[in-house]
Amino acid sequence: MKPARIILLIVAIVAGGLAAFLVTRGGSAPTTITQTEVIEEAKAQVLVARTPIGMGERLTPDMVAWQDWPEGALRSEYVTSSAMPDAPAALTGAVARFEFFPGEPIREAKLVRSEQGYLSAVLSEGMRGVSVNVTPASSAGGFVVPNDHVDVLLTTGSGAAQQSQLILSNVRVLAIGQRLGELGVTGGGENPGAAETTPATFTDATIATLELTPGQAETLVNASTAGQLSLTLRSVVDFNNPVTADASGSKTVRLIRFGKEQAVQAGSVSSDQQAIVNTPVSVTPAAAPQTMPPIDPASVPM
């Protein structure tokens, strides 16, 4: 083979190898590796309910536990380990004024540190707890539970003369029997300490404890001796409405008839009494005293 052909063949082989190198290596785009750094958000220790805590229950250390909580989601009313490191022990014996669900942060505003009974701890300031006998038939079939709001009706008379009137409106139920709340030991039921998943009812005659003002308490006690009391359940949308005046008037008024005083409920005045109350009284002005006409001295004989 001629030297010129050998040189040409060598040049062709080198050119082909260089082209293959450029295609396989030199023509590929550079690979970019992006590293993402994960920064964990700062957390704090918040005291939460470990088990359901019913209204009126006293806290124990095994009911609560510390849990990590993002600092960005902290609220000032939460109990934190930095502000109260001995919170489980410090809050032992405090009474829950409202229910706590598992995992819910403990707030001191929902607790009261009281050595008194459960009921006095959950009563609002200035209110009174008054108990009355009720039956399922007289209280929405037994479906009334604590924290419901009810109206109280008084039924008097019998037979055709039986009548009912509203004496209290939109009052809060504190307890039914020994039941103070929906959860925990105070929830009653067959499984104390567990959340209830079915509607709660009572089937036997029991005692309902209502949260009332002093004036309402007096009205209810007086009415309990006059007839049968019934509870009518209100809708939950009415709970936050202000307590309205009783439709038929719940105050006792004094009626004086024929010189005798009688106490009656406003709005329950009978027809003959109403006629007397509404009958206008006409007053005849007293006759003016008669006076002697003036005497003319000239007409008097001398």
Rank of each mutant, 00 (worst) to 15 (best):
A263N: 13
T201E: 12
V46A: 01
G159M: 13
T219G: 08
A20H: 10
P297R: 14
R128W: 06
N133P: 06
G26E: 12
A73E: 12
S81A: 11
L74I: 11
W66V: 04
S120L: 05
S282G: 10
S270T: 15
A15F: 04
A194L: 12
L153R: 01
W66H: 02
S230G: 13
G184I: 05
P146V: 03
A263Y: 07
S158T: 11
M292W: 07
V122M: 03
G27F: 09
T198C: 08
N147L: 00
V112M: 01
M292K: 05
Q116R: 08
A140V: 03
E37C: 10
N222R: 09
R257D: 13
P70Q: 14
T197A: 11
V185G: 08
A247V: 14
A90K: 08
P105G: 07
S158I: 08
M63R: 13
V38R: 15
N240V: 04
R257F: 01
P214T: 08
L212M: 04
I6E: 09
A94H: 10
I167T: 02
I53G: 01
K110L: 11
F98W: 06
V38G: 02
I33G: 07
K43D: 03
T291E: 11
E196W: 07
I13N: 06
G72V: 15
Q273E: 15
P242K: 13
N191D: 14
K2R: 14
A96L: 06
Q178A: 09
V277Q: 09
S268V: 13
G227Y: 00
